[in-house]
Design a protein around this nucleic acid. Structure first.
Length: 189
DNA sequence: AAGTAGATGTTCT
DNA sequence: GAACATCTACTTA
């Protein structure tokens, strides 16, 4: 059994937190898996929702670390982020892909798909598979329905980095992190 | 294998 | 009214 992540584990820089989350376990109501892809966003970064300061939508990102920031994207997809740094910094990590380990049946129901590899390979897919909605907005990550556990330390975790996906600004920053060799990432690095 | 179009609704200018 | 931290289905090869 690995260590449960505490709110303090999210107090660091978003880039550091994103890297350290690769290999961690994320469950929502018992459904989820290993985080194999995540991206960092920060107020100093033109691609971030928080770049222009606090708004109604991004309010949670300016709150305390270790909480959920959920947003509705392209009119279709719910995406899950973890708030980082101390309050006021507008930093966070977008969960982009999981290797499914828990509640595969539930994921298949919600996704209407059989292929394990496509259940959580992308932020919108993660949102659908885990049942992410506005109801989770601002909730702490160290309490139900969330379960977050540190990566299993028995195996070395090889993390690779690259440019983020689907943004039109700050494209050069290598703030996308992934588990090397994983077939569950949304795209190759 | 790679590229394009369409869906769909909230946020911000 | 444009942009948007995306996904799917469909085309072309």
């Amino acid at each position: 059994m690995t260590r449960a992540l505490q709110r303090q584990d999210f107090a660091g820089d978003a880039v550091d937190v994103a890297r350290s989350l690769i290999g961690a376990t994320l469950l929502v109501d018992g459904v989820g898996g290993l985080i194999v892809e995540a991206e960092a966003y920060d107020m100093t970064d033109a691609a971030a929702h928080t770049h222009r300061g606090p708004t109604e939508r991004n309010r949670a990102m300016f709150g305390p670390p270790g909480h959920a920031y959920v947003y509705f994207n392209y009119g279709l997809h719910w995406c899950l982020n973890f708030v980082c740094r101390e309050s006021g910094h507008g930093a966070g990590v977008l969960i982009r892909a999981l290797q499914p380990t828990h509640g595969l049946d539930r994921m298949r129901q919600r996704r209407g798909l059989d292929d394990e590899r496509l259940l959580c390979a992308g932020p919108g897919r993660v949102g659908q598979a885990l049942g992410i909605t506005k109801a989770l907005y601002g909730l702490p990550l160290d309490e139900p329905p969330f379960v977050l556990r540190a990566p299993d330390a028995t195996g070395a975790i090889e993390v690779i980095a690259g440019p983020r996906v689907g943004i039109s600004k700050a494209q050069a920053l290598p703030w996308r992190f992934g588990l090397a060799g994983s077939r569950y990432v949304s795209r190759r690095f």
